[in-house]
Structure formats: C-alpha cells, structure tokens
C-alpha cells in the first residue's frame, strides 16, 4: 500500500441495513475504502457480500444507513447515475452481452455519453476507441475482438466483463467473484490483471478462493451474517479464531 500518500476517503458504507422481509442480508454494516486501495471482502455463503455490491450500485436500496461516494450520498440515486459518478460492477455470473462482438461489448462500456439520441450514429470517438483497444490488450482478447462474446470460453467471459468494467473509466470497481469457474493458471492471471490496475483505481473484490486472495496481498474484510466481523491482512484473518469458527460453521 502507498503508505506515505495522504489516504483520501473514496467510499463509506455507514450502518447499512438491507431487510428482505425479515431476513437482514446486511445488518448495520459499515466499511470505508480509500482512493487507490484494493480490498477483498470474504465471508461464508449468505454473509451478505453480493448484497453489499447490490446496495452500492443501487440495485438494492438500504432500509437504513448511508452510502457516501466522494462526499455525496448515493443510496437514493438512479442506477445509471451511480455508474455516472464512477462506480461499476462485474457480476458474479458473467454478464457479457452474448450476441454482440467482444469489441462492441467494450465499446458500449467505454461510451461516455450514454443518452439515447446520441446513439444515432456509428462513429466512435478516438478516446473511446483507444480505451477499447487498451482494454482488449489488458485481458489479451485482441485476437478475439470480432467474435460474438457468447462464444468465448468461461474464463474469457470473466475477463471480458472485467475489461468492460475497466473501460467505463469508473474509479471504483466492484468485482464479484472474478475467478469463479477458473483454474489456477487463469486465477493467477486474473490476480495480475487486478494488480496491474495500479493506484488510479479503487477495487473491491469479493472472492472465496484464498490462494487468489493471497496473490492480491490486499487487506481483507470479513463479513458474517450481514455484519462486519474482522479486518486485517490475509495472515491476520487466517489466524483469527473467530474467522475460523465462522468458516467451520460455528457461530462465534
């Protein structure tokens, strides 16, 4: 981590509760992210990790609490406005657009002016074109740019969606299980990709795979039953008896 730089608060999730008719998927959950940070969120199934992502991007609205991004309350903004502020998410199941070419998928993501009447044309601005090519290279899909995204292998789809999220130019990337369904080699490449994003982006990663989390060498936040449980380095979290108990199925 960049220790000397003044850490600037980018996102703060403050006492957020999401109530699914009695079941609290998030229960007064709080966390903060600094600009340029990479953070991993882990927790057993049903801990509320995906609901956290859903809440940040506006897919699910919290019944209590605030989400503040760059000093602005965003928990009541429309979804597209939240993306406009600079937050984009990769979904757990790859959400690429199957009948579009890989390049069109990325061009759609790289588009800055997303109003409908501005889509009446075929030209793509130079900077968007460059962003597409850069994203293609980052995930090594340049040679597959013109095939339909639906024909890609599973791992390639995951990378394509990560590239799409990158191409939006978002400052905060939420990556929900980016290595789901990947083998060890693909997992390492995904870790390299995320590490290569550098300090310009803030990344929130949700994953189960501890070897992947170790490769990211990022601070870990542990969730359990919709609540904050622990935060620390991978080693600290691993050594923690409370975390071990949660993963073994005992409630601490």
């Amino acid at each position: 981590m960049s220790g000397s730089a003044v850490s600037e608060l980018l996102l703060s999730v403050d006492g957020v509760t999401v109530d699914y008719s009695g079941f609290k998927a998030l229960d007064g959950f709080s966390m903060t992210l600094n600009r340029g940070e990479t953070r991993v969120v882990i927790g057993p199934n049903g801990a509320g990790k995906s609901t956290l992502c859903d809440t940040i991007i506006g897919r699910v609205r919290p019944s209590e609490g605030r989400i503040v991004f760059k000093g602005e309350d965003i928990q009541n903004l429309p979804e597209q406005a939240i993306v406009g502020r600079g937050i984009c998410r990769k979904f757990q199941a790859p959400g690429v657009l199957p009948t579009l070419s890989v390049r069109d998928n990325l061009a759609l993501a790289a588009r800055r002016d997303r109003r409908w009447w501005k889509s009446l044309g075929t030209g793509i601005p130079v900077e968007e074109r460059a962003a597409v090519e850069e994203a293609l290279e980052a995930v090594a899909l340049t040679h597959r740019a013109d095939v339909e995204a639906g024909t890609l292998a599973h791992g390639e789809k995951q990378w394509l969606e990560i590239a799409m999220v990158m191409a939006t130019g978002a400052e905060l990337l939420l990556l929900d299980e980016p290595t789901a369904g990947m083998g060890p080699a693909e997992t390492s490449r995904t870790a390299q990709l995320i590490l290569g994003l550098g300090d310009s982006r803030t990344v929130l990663v949700i994953d189960h795979d501890m070897s992947f989390v170790e490769q990211l060498a990022a601070p870990v936040t542990v969730m359990h039953q919709g609540k904050f449980l622990k935060q620390g380095s991978v080693a600290e979290v691993r050594a923690d008896p409370q975390v071990a108990a949660v993963y073994l199925g005992h409630t601490a």
Binding site: E79, Q80, V83, G84, M164, T168
Partner: peptide
Amino acid sequence: RVRFLGYN
C-alpha cells in the same frame, strides 16, 4: 448489464 454500465 446495460443498466449497470450506466445506460437507462
């Protein structure tokens, strides 16, 4: 996916 790429 389209919605969460910022389009309405």
